[in-house]
């Protein structure tokens, strides 16, 4: 082995790495927020919706959960233009991540909704709340509290999974690592530093989610 490690080369590339990191965070945040909204709507639809809505949502959730994210990404980035909808790599990445995490969130939240005791809904009815109010104030609130840890786990996996969007050259952290390594040939250094950044991100994110859980969510 006659490879000399040079982490110094990487120091000069920090602005690029920072840009990549910020895009990874932005993509993850967009997919978390939009995916949560999509998941909540999907869960409500699959519990309370008419039969055709339930069937449609079942198809969506099963299709997403049983195919690789990379193929879904190619469908959005390469397949949609064939239907006349052309998206930039970054937008395609955000859309694919959202659609993906939305299906997982829908399945998780649905389980939470089904676990809300019947008596809670009856109590809401007794208080004279309308169905929409009961769903929003009683059912969804309790369901989200119950499934908070599962959703957060999913969000961290989403952040790590976002590295896959480098395959369509969305300029996030992994894509930046690829371009730095192809220019400088400091392959091992680049990938080990970027792996460490991801590790710090996921540990940090988990700590934040845990603090929120202990301080606010578990307390109600």
């Amino acid at each position: 082995m006659n490879y000399v490690f040079q982490f110094g080369t990487l120091l000069r590339e920090w602005p690029l790495l920072l840009d990549g990191l910020l895009l990874t965070l932005r993509l993850s945040l967009i997919a978390m927020v939009c995916g949560l909204a999509l998941g909540a709507a999907g869960a409500i639809g699959s519990v309370y919706g008419p039969r055709w809505v339930k069937a449609g949502l079942f198809g969506y959730v099963e299709a997403i959960r049983n195919t690789p994210f990379l193929v879904q990404l190619f469908m959005v980035f390469l397949g949609l233009p064939a239907l006349g909808l052309r998206l930039s790599p970054n937008t395609a990445a955000a859309v694919a991540l959202t659609v993906n995490v939305g299906a997982y969130a829908a399945e998780i939240i649905r389980a939470g909704i089904e676990a809300v005791p019947r008596g809670q809904i009856e109590a809401g009815l007794a208080l004279g709340l309308r169905q929409a109010q009961i769903i929003r104030l009683v059912v969804l609130r309790q369901a989200l509290i119950a499934v908070y840890p599962a959703l957060c786990s999913q969000f961290i996996l989403l952040m790590l999974g976002s590295s896959v969007v480098s395959a369509i050259a969305a300029e996030e952290l992994t894509a930046v690592a690829n371009s730095i390594q192809s220019r400088t040939f400091r392959t091992f250094e680049v990938y080990s530093v970027v792996t460490a950044i991801y590790l710090a991100l996921s540990l940090g994110l988990r700590q934040v989610f845990r603090i929120v859980y202990v301080r606010w969510v578990r307390a109600g």
Binding site: M1, N2, Y3, L160, G161, S162, S163, V164, S166, T174, A177, Q181, T187, F188, Y191, S192, V194, T195, Y198, L199, S202, L203
Partner: peptide, 24 residues
């Protein structure tokens, strides 16, 4: 477990593939 659950699978594959080749 922390290491493999806390980093992207893609990075793990890159480290193995490119890393091992560079290390000879």
């Amino acid at each position: 477990v922390e290491l493999f659950q806390g980093t992207p699978l893609l990075m793990q594959l890159f480290m193995l593939f490119f890393g091992a080749n560079i290390l000879g």
